[in-house]
Structures are given as structure tokens and as C-alpha cells.
Simulated scan of single mutants.
Amino acid sequence: MTILKSQKINLLRKGIASAILLASFAASGTAQASERGKVLVILSSEQTVALRDGKTYHAGYYLDELEIPLRKIIEAGYTPVFANPKGNPVTFDKASNDKIFYDGSDKKRAEAVSYLEGVDALKHPQTFKNILKGGTKTFVGVFIPGGWSPMQDLTTDKDLGKILTGFHQQGKPTGVICHGPAALISTLPDAAAFTQALAAGKPELAGSLAKNWPYAGYRLTVFSRSEESAVEGAQAQLGGNVSYYAADGLAQAGAHVDRLGLWAVNVVEDREVVSGQQPFSSDAFGNAFVAKLKNSL
């Protein structure tokens, strides 16, 4: 009896250890045995964003826009692979480290920060060039969280344009939220000229440059102009005004931009693309994107 009891205890210990190990693998994005596939997570390399009149805003990804969908992706059995233009580690926008995005729960907010700190792969993103070497066929989907940082580099990154074009051509799930949808502009033939025209207040010129955009005619949602206006200004969160509105950029490129009221939960699905309007849409967006991943198998 003593031997059997000892064996049961050892088996229980091994089981607990295995569970902890699997959880650790999942959190670090390195699980291999039971993964459903790899999801490419695109981040900006920038922590500051240029505003009008020479002002800047200290940005980063939005905490809940990355953490909530990422947690759902990992728990569903997918392995995240992080990448950005420079391959440099980045962190969240300090303004997003707020319980308001976690149902007013400071405990949930703190747990979100701790969770991302435990995702080791997030600290070592690959470069876009490295992703291109391996190609996009090894991934089952791509996810781009928001924050203002994507407006600084992702919208005009040619390598990202190639990566996203690959996912589009293969019809693989593409999840974008808040300012993340603006990264789709990178697939334009001359994204730099397009965004420069928008910043210069020349929408007609921008429209003339929006030829052969892969996502023309798609229904998308994005951080709305009214929401942008609510956080602009010297006394507001941004401390200045953005160079151009992400919603206007997508509309000029050829998308049908769907926006609900200020801070309303909004998720739009069209073909392979799932888009969310802003941080308060993160939970619904994460569920919709994971469902899209599962249904695409």
C-alpha cells in the first residue's frame, strides 16, 4: 500500500510538472507538440510617433489589444511568432496600462502586464526580412495590434507589404485592431507617397495613388476619426494632432470603413480579414479572430 501510494504521489507530481511545463511553453510561444500552427504577430519598432507641428507622442502597442487576443491565440493552441521592422524589443503605451481597458479591474490589468512579461518570444522579435526568407506559407494567420506606433513605420514598410500580400493571396486569416488596420496600407505600390499626400491634406492625390490595393472593396473597421479627435490636442492624451487619420487613409485606399459610436465594441469580418475598432473591442475581436483561424483549417 505504501509503495502504491508513493507511486501515485510521484505520478501526480509528474503530471503537475508536465502541466506547468506545457503552460510555460504556451506562454513563451515555443510550444511544438500540440500546436495548431504558427500565427505571425506584427509589431511596430517605434516607441514615438510624429505629430503635427513637430510634436511627438511616446507610444507603443496598446496593452489589451495585444494581451487579450494573444492570450486567446495561445490558449487555442497556436504558437505566436513576433516580428517588426528592426527586430527590436518594444513595450506598451503607458496610457494603455489602465484598468479602464480591463472592466475597471486593477487586478486584471496587473495580470495582463505579468502575462506579457512571461511571453519570452515577445522580447526577441524577428525582422520582417527574416520572415520573408522563410515565407508566409508556414503561418496559419497574421495578427496586428494597435496603438499609434503602426502609423509611424508599418504603413510604409515595403517588407511588411510583401508579407501581408502573401497572406492575402493565400486567403489566410488576417486580424487587425485599432490602428493595426492602417498597416494594410503598406501593400500599396507607393505607400510612402500615399501617406505623404494624406499628411499634406491632399486626399485626391492620395486617392490617385491607391491603385491595385489588395484590400480595395473590403469592409474594415479602425480607430474612428471621432475617437481620434477625442484624444487629440495639447491638453489631451496625445498632446497634439495626428498627421492624418487612419480611418481616412483606409477609405482613400479603397476600403469601406465601418465605424460605430464613440468607444463602442465593433468587430467587422470580410473574407479573410477580421478588424476591431479600438481597445474596448479587444475581447470580441480576439474571439472572432481565433474562430476565423479554426474555421480556416
Rank of each mutant, 00 (worst) to 15 (best):
G254N: 07
N97A: 14
R271W: 01
A95C: 04
H179Y: 09
Q169R: 13
S243T: 10
G141N: 04
C178A: 06
A291L: 07
G29E: 04
F280Y: 14
T30M: 10
S208Q: 14
D93F: 14
T136I: 13
L40M: 01
A191W: 06
L160F: 08
L297R: 12
S243P: 10
N10Y: 12
T30D: 08
A199D: 15
F92L: 07
V273Q: 10
K123E: 12
P145L: 00
F101R: 05
G118E: 05
S296I: 04
G201Q: 05
G60W: 10
G161D: 06
N10H: 10
I73E: 01
Q237N: 11
L11V: 02
H58K: 14
A253F: 00
D248C: 02
G54R: 08
G104V: 02
I185K: 01
A200W: 11
S208N: 15
A19C: 09
I144H: 06
K162I: 00
S275H: 06
P125T: 01
K294H: 13
I16D: 02
V274C: 05
S24W: 13
D103C: 02
A210Y: 03
V81K: 08
T187N: 04
K202D: 14
I73A: 11
A23I: 11
G233Y: 04
G118W: 08
V113A: 09
L238Y: 02
V90D: 07
F101C: 02
A192H: 14
E67V: 13
A27G: 13
H168D: 07
T187C: 09
H179C: 00
L132D: 05
Y61E: 03
I163H: 05
K99Q: 14
A23V: 11
Y244H: 13
Q277K: 03
I131A: 05
L209N: 06
N130M: 08
D103S: 11
G135F: 03
R271C: 04
K162V: 02
L184A: 07
M1S: 14
V290F: 02
V81L: 02
G141M: 07
L116V: 10
A121S: 15
P145H: 00
L238P: 12
K172G: 00
K99S: 15
T138K: 15
I185E: 09
A76L: 03
L63D: 06
S224P: 02
T187F: 04
P69K: 03
G118S: 12
K94N: 14
V231Q: 09
G286N: 03
Y115K: 11
E75L: 08
E232M: 04
S28A: 12
L198D: 04
Q32D: 13
F139R: 03
L4I: 11
K107M: 07
M151G: 08
R52C: 03
D157V: 06
F139E: 01
V113S: 10
G60T: 08
S34G: 09
V81F: 00
S208M: 10
S149Q: 05
A264N: 15
K5R: 13
D270K: 05
F194Q: 09
V267N: 02
T221C: 02
D53P: 01
A192M: 12
K292R: 14
Q252P: 03
G254E: 11
K55I: 05
I144S: 07
Q126R: 15
I100D: 08
K294E: 15
V119C: 15
